[in-house]
Design a protein around this nucleic acid. Structure first.
Lengths: 86, 86, 86, 86
DNA sequence: AACGCATAAGTAAGAC
DNA sequence: GTCTTACTTATGCGTT
């Protein structure tokens, strides 16, 4: 292997390492925040709140209101088709 | 409703709001970091790296780490099963 | 090791193997059925049904109706506390 | 609503019902098998085996199998990345 | 009876 | 644009 090829490979390997380290660092941060969220839910539970309902509220707020309405409409349509009570 | 009950409810509602806001704030941060990760993959791709392979490497390294931790856990489990002190 | 101890261990090892094989056999069956379910969803999709809604219907039917009502009541209560539209 | 539309809807509703019933039937079977697995663990426990260790063994054997398959996948991935025929 | 864990369901992103 | 795959969320189960 000549020097040029060797250098090219080295650079690529270094770059690869750098990308991997950046990603792994970010994933750690993400995991840390996920842990924080878990802690807040635990704290809320300790204060008497139902975490299941809490999670539902969070997800409802996240979801666009209009979309939620539309989904419910489709669901009702299907439920009617099946003769289920709405 | 007497004042005491009213106040209790108010406090609960305020607490609930506070918990929700804390969680939503953290979820935003988490989503931000997820976006950063996505960007790094895109940058790597722009530098000629195959993101599929990159993701594979990341997941393998993560799994290797998890496995090492699990090995410890299995060892402890077996030692407990055999009545050995840990 | 005397014969009695040897036999005791053999029996235990045989029993262990037998339990493991029974469980693994059952898990295979379970995975097979899970695959069948997936296939039915795919077939439904091919006939123009929205699998997301389909899954929702299934889960709603599974859930006890009374429980669902109660959960909704709690949810509404919380949503009112937050000033969210119901 | 004219007859054609009505018939179309009827057919769709019947189809929907049929899909739902098929899925629910399969889910019942699946739940039955899950129950059987639970029973085997209970029986093993009654015979003096530690279910936690048992579950660990099962999951390790499952993982080993999955890993062997993944090794193949990684190999193919790298061969593709190197432009080698599979 | 409450807690954490492990599996299962649902959702969203990425590849072909 | 569809289809799979990976991640996130949720439920249920066993344990303390």
């Amino acid at each position: 292997m000549d020097d040029a090829a060797f250098n090219t490979e080295s650079v690529a390997a270094d770059q690869l390492k750098a990308f991997i380290e950046r990603i792994e660092r970010l994933e750690e941060e993400k995991a840390g925040i996920a842990g924080d969220i878990k802690d807040v839910y635990a704290e809320a539970k300790g204060n008497g709140f139902d975490t299941k309902v809490l999670r539902k509220i969070i997800s409802l707020r996240k979801r666009d209101y209009a979309e939620r309405q539309e989904e419910e409409a489709i669901l009702e349509l299907y439920m009617q088709a099946l003769g289920m009570p709405i």
